[in-house]
Amino acid sequence: MDKTAQRLLKEDRVHGDNLFPLAAYWIELPGGEQVLDTHWHVEAEFFLLLEGEIQFQVDTDSFPLRAGEAIFIDPGDIHSAYSLNNEPCRFCALVFHPDLLQSAQYDAIQQKVIVPFLERRQTFPRVLSPDSPWQRELLGLLDGMMKAYAEQKPGCEVFMKASLLMMLSYLAAEERPSNRSRSDDADTTKVSRLKKVIQHIQEHYREPIRIQELAELIPMSEGQFCRFFKSMTRKTPVDYINSYRVRQAADLLRQTERKISDIAFDVGFDNVSYFIKVFRRIMKSTPSEFRKGREPEPRQPAGLSADS
Rank of each mutant, 00 (worst) to 15 (best):
A5S: 14
L8P: 10
L9G: 05
K10W: 11
N18H: 11
L19C: 07
I27H: 00
I27L: 03
E28R: 10
E33L: 07
L36K: 01
H39V: 03
H41F: 09
F47T: 06
L50P: 11
E51S: 15
I54G: 01
I54Q: 02
Q55A: 00
T60Y: 02
F63K: 02
A70D: 05
I73Y: 04
H79E: 05
S80C: 13
S80K: 05
C89W: 02
C89H: 01
A93T: 10
V95Y: 04
L100A: 02
A104Y: 13
D107H: 12
K112P: 04
V113R: 13
V113A: 14
V115G: 00
V127K: 14
L128I: 06
S132I: 05
P133L: 04
W134L: 00
E137Q: 09
L141T: 03
E151A: 14
F159G: 00
K161E: 13
A162V: 09
A162T: 13
R176Q: 09
S183A: 15
D184P: 04
D184M: 15
D184C: 15
D185N: 14
T188M: 10
T189H: 04
K196W: 03
V197P: 01
I201H: 01
Q202E: 08
P208T: 09
A215K: 01
I218Q: 15
I218T: 12
M220C: 12
S221Q: 12
F225W: 01
R227Q: 14
V238T: 12
V238E: 14
R245Q: 07
R247D: 07
R247P: 04
R254I: 03
Q255P: 06
I260W: 02
I260C: 10
S261Y: 06
D262I: 01
I263V: 07
F265S: 13
V267L: 06
I276R: 13
I276H: 08
S285T: 09
S288R: 10
K292T: 02
P298Y: 06
P301N: 05
S305R: 10
A306G: 14
S308A: 10
